[in-house]
Design a protein around this nucleic acid. Structure first.
Lengths: 105, 105
DNA sequence: CATTTAATTCTATATATGTAGAGTTACTTG
DNA sequence: CAAGTAACTCTACATATATAGAATTAAATG
């Protein structure tokens, strides 16, 4: 039984962010800053979502040397469906899916 | 008049490290750990030495994605001569050119 | 010798990734 | 409902680079 547990608020926030811009690639550092989720929490989330087929990934090299490459993520088709349901469910139950860091202030 | 000032202890330590292994490439992070010189001190030193023609540089990509590339440095021919004189001078004056971080304990 | 100036160092921050291990929370099972 | 377990989060650290601006130090100059 994969993903038995309801997604955490952090996972929901990440999912909502991807849903807002379906088809677009995002990278961890950007998501981390936008949602104020620390890297040690975010990267495991991104990896879990990827492992479950909700996100697909790709690497893009930096144009300036010395900077680490970016690991890009975006929703898969099934990921979009899963995220839509998960976020809608959470909103219905008023579980507070934050859109941005500011929205949670 | 470039390099009017005598090289600092940090610059001497870096120079000595390069001298010990002339011809070999080193990267900043490694030097920083070995000599315990913080990055904000070390990178300017490496850039100055490069600008003055004492070091040549090269980038090597990391084999594991997500890790930044390494900026490699090694002595040039003139750099070796300069460093040999600078380090010898300092040792003669007993200015304490540390070989390693431990050597300064 | 005091002041000025230029060179250098230091502290903090930024860019990006990720893992280890401890702690917490949610879900299941007895 | 209590206890166990699995999932998840958090803190700290590691990998590598570099810059901005403040503080300091060394050398020159008066």
């Amino acid at each position: 039984m994969v993903m038995a547990r309801r997604p955490s608020s952090q996972t929901l926030a990440v999912s909502a962010l991807f849903l807002e811009s379906t088809g677009q690639w995002h990278h961890g550092y950007d998501i981390s800053k936008r949602l104020r989720i620390p890297s040690g929490t975010l990267y495991p989330i991104l990896m879990r979502l990827s492992d479950r087929g909700h996100l697909e990934t790709r690497w893009t090299e930096s144009e300036t040397p010395g900077r680490p490459a970016r690991h890009m993520y975006r929703l898969t088709a099934t990921g979009r469906d899963w995220a839509a349901v998960a976020v809608a469910d959470a909103r219905r139950q008023n579980l507070g899916v934050r859109q941005t860091a500011e929205g949670m202030a």
